[in-house]
Design a protein around this nucleic acid. Sequence first.
DNA 1: AAAACATATGCAAAGTTTTGAATAGGAAAT
DNA 2: ATTTCCTATTCAAAACTTTGCATATGTTTT
Lengths: 99, 99
Amino acid sequence: MDGDLARNKTEGAVVAEEQARLLKVMGNPWRLRILALLVEEPRQVGDLEAALGLGQAYVSQQLARLRAEGVVEGERNGRAVHYRIVDPRVPSVLKALCR
Amino acid sequence: MDGDLARNKTEGAVVAEEQARLLKVMGNPWRLRILALLVEEPRQVGDLEAALGLGQAYVSQQLARLRAEGVVEGERNGRAVHYRIVDPRVPSVLKALCR
DNA sequence: AAAACATATGCAAAGTTTTGAATAGGAAAT
DNA sequence: ATTTCCTATTCAAAACTTTGCATATGTTTT
């Protein structure tokens, strides 16, 4: 069902777009470092701020971008929000970068 | 030698920038598909053009970008230029995306 | 309820990427 | 030497990213 003639994009193109979105959102030094920290263990925004020496708003913005792409998720605990990685490809990609 | 006080960027930041550059250049659907083809075997520009249904100039541009980042290299053979992947992390990252 | 704390959002200027169209270069065949 | 084939470069407009600053929201403590 749903043969190639009925589609405007081939399956290969759709897959590549999806994969490229992940690489693109990981392709920024600060987001990459945030992910490298989160892959170790979930952390709250303030922890990331302190670990990277970045401003609060900036970290929140990058987390919003990662959230929008379905890479991380935040859960509220009192006033803090704990973030964790939800895309299983992220740890694999991070390891691949160390080859 | 070259302690932290003498640097403007920490080592972690330098590494992250280098890794992010790779992910960024891979984070475009067409370049990703080009790399997926080249990882199978080296190919000339016209092959990529045909395989992806893209214009010649466009493919050359993307190859130039990949070359500029040290991801691929081209070698002339008569009038054709054969491209191959030279960054060893590329195959690993491509595999990681399939998790 | 006000203050203090932790996080999120909106906005905008500067910079970068994307993409197409035109053109240039290099090698081989006629 | 001219043509043909294959690849590379240049230019420019539109779209998107980056980054900082100001401000808003939600939560706990006083």
